[in-house]
Each structure stands twice: as C-alpha cells, then as structure tokens.
Amino acid sequence: MRRLISLLLLLIVALGIFLCFSGASFGAEGASRAGKLTEDKVNFGRRYASRGLEENKAGNIVASVVVNYRGFDTLGEVTVLFIAAVGLAAILHARREEATPSKAEPASLIVFTGCRFLFPLILLLGAYIFIHGHLTPGGGFQGGAVVASGFLLIYLGCRGRGLRSAGVAVAESLSGLAFLAVALVGLAVGGSFLLNFLPKGSAFALFSGGVIPLIYVAIGFKVGSELGGIIDNLSGEAR
C-alpha cells in the first residue's frame, strides 16, 4: 500500500515537471518572450550561434560559449571540482592511519604490459582533445577526464605505480593560477575579466581563438590533475 501511494505521488510529480518542460521552448524560438527588448536580445543562444564565430574566431562555438561568454561559470565549475578533490583529501587524511595495507595481488603480465602500452596513447588522446578544444568537439573538461582515466588504468593495472601527490598539487595550483592570470590580464588590458585580448587569427586554424586555447589547456591540466588526485586518494592503500 505504501509503495503504491509513493509510486502515485512520484507519477504526479513527474507529470507536473513534464508538463512544465514540454511547454518550454529552450531557446529554439524566442516566441514566448514578447518583451520590449529588441529582436537581437531576444535569444542569446541564437546570437551565439550566428555571431560567435566572428567574435571569437573559434571553430567550436561551444568552446567560445564555455570559455568566453560564460567563462566565469567555467571558473566556478573548475573551482567546484577543486573543492571536491581537496575536501575528499581532507576527510581521508584523518582516516588514513586506520587504513590497512591492501592485499591485492599484482596484475598479470598481459594486463601490466597492456596498461603500460595504452597509457601514453590515452594521454595523447586527452591532450589532443583539450588542445583542439576550440576546433573540434571536446575541450578542457573532456580532455582532462580522459587524461585522468589514463592514470586510473595505471592504478588498476600497474600496482605500486602512481602519481606523486606533490606533483599533482603543483599541477593543480599552477593550472588554476594560469586560468586566473589569463583572465586578470584581460582585466588589466581591456578592463574586462576574461577578455579575449590576444589576436584571434583566422577561424579553424590551430592558432586561433585568442585566449580560448590557452584557457582550455589550463582547464585540461587542472581537471586532469584534480580527477587524478581523487583517484590517487581513493586507491590510497594500494601504494
């Protein structure tokens, strides 16, 4: 009986949310907005798509939205991930002493060799994703996650090897500071935080988009080292 009632309530809530979302236009049309603002201001999603390429010269419009138009949010999101990594380390720090050493057996030779063979390739893929973030789909977050999954492979397949925590901390710090430094140079040069102050070049070339590739590389390093640090902390006893 209780289960039936809870299911019924859930259905009602789901129906309500569905009704609300089904009517929403999600930026596809500006029709629902009959305000007194001009047509250009009606829909910023459409404006990004139509003007983003010429304004930032980044082939991947998503990149210019993530790093330029809404770059401040990205800074916040990188910080959230940083907090998650630091907070996890802080809580596990107190528990570290109690942890018993892991008794896991070493991986077989095939797994060991396979991991070592794949590891540089995964790193290369991750680096490619965030260096080409302004040209092709993907970017700092995705590239960083791929890099971190490479380290995960090492932790799983090659026991006894892993990241040095001092190195992770330095990479984390410096990449975060690099992001902020680029943003603050924009403030100093053009009076606006995160301003795209570098020459933008021509779209779809590797050296284009002004500061977007720089920031994406910084995000890639930061996300990679943070996720790597989380994995390192959680699999801590293995070392």
Partner: peptide, 9 residues
C-alpha cells in the same frame, strides 16, 4: 558531441 564525450568519460 561535447556533452556526449563528457558523459562517456
């Protein structure tokens, strides 16, 4: 595709 990559990885 951006979101797909993030979601997958």
């Amino acid at each position: 595709p951006d979101v797909a990559m993030a979601e997958a990885s």
